[in-house]
Amino acid sequence: MSVVPAEVLPGSVLAVDETARPAAAELGPRARLWPSLCAVYRAQLSRARVARIPLLFVATFQSIGIMILMRGVVDGGAEAQAVVAGSSVLVVAFVALNLLAQYFGQLRASGGLDHYATLPVPPAAVVLGAAGAYASFTVPGTVVTALFGCVLFGLPVAHLWVLVAVIPLAGAALAGLGAALGLLAPRPELATLLGQLGMSAALLLGVLPADRMPEVVRFARDLLPSTYGVEAFARTFGPHPDWAFVLGDLAVCGVVGVVSLAVATWAYRRAAVR
């Protein structure tokens, strides 16, 4: 480092003119990623007490109702496995995709993002904290739905532990998608509509058995990230699950999660400064 003061260096005379300004003040600390992510997560989770519990019941009863309906059409086998797995992941889609899209859509439209944008917090902390909290809301509903489905269709509960991987990974993919839709939609009604459509797609394409669908619909089903969560979960009901395929499906969820959360973070940045 040079010990010569900048003022005496040749060429610096022009820069130091009559508008010489006082040295810039020290900036306040920047909030680091993990602590602020945890703070946002905790705050979002506390909202559950006030606003989310009734909706969690709705999500769970919806899935249980669908399984009871399908009980009349499907009896056992691969189709029953698909129905139980699809209904369980539907709870994740309802909360993480639909409700999160609505939340961010409303926050953006009402100017609530200004609060976060005028705090020195990394955009990723806000998006990941909210997405993580919404994914966590889905845990009780998903577990209850899976257990009820296993009893209803007589499926083994031995491998239900796989939900430990399915919920966070499908949750990341769907919450990222929900956050991105909510932050990109130009109007809050559109964010709500997109969230609802996403959930309806997860319902129709996830719960109904795939081999009865036409080719086009099956292609659409492959595009939907929740499908991979459903498939991974459904495979574990078999007597000898092929764990390589399960891991493969979960990896797809993980990759979609990373990409969609990155898009959501970009969308947040874009929405915060207009």
């Binding site: 909030a31 905790r42 506390s46 609060h115 976060y116």
Partner: peptide, 26 residues
Amino acid sequence: YLGQESTALDELTVSLAAETTGRLRG
């Protein structure tokens, strides 16, 4: 900055809103 909107804090308790904002200020 205190804006005119409080939607980001509305569903938090007074205490958690203040604490979370402080944490997000580093």
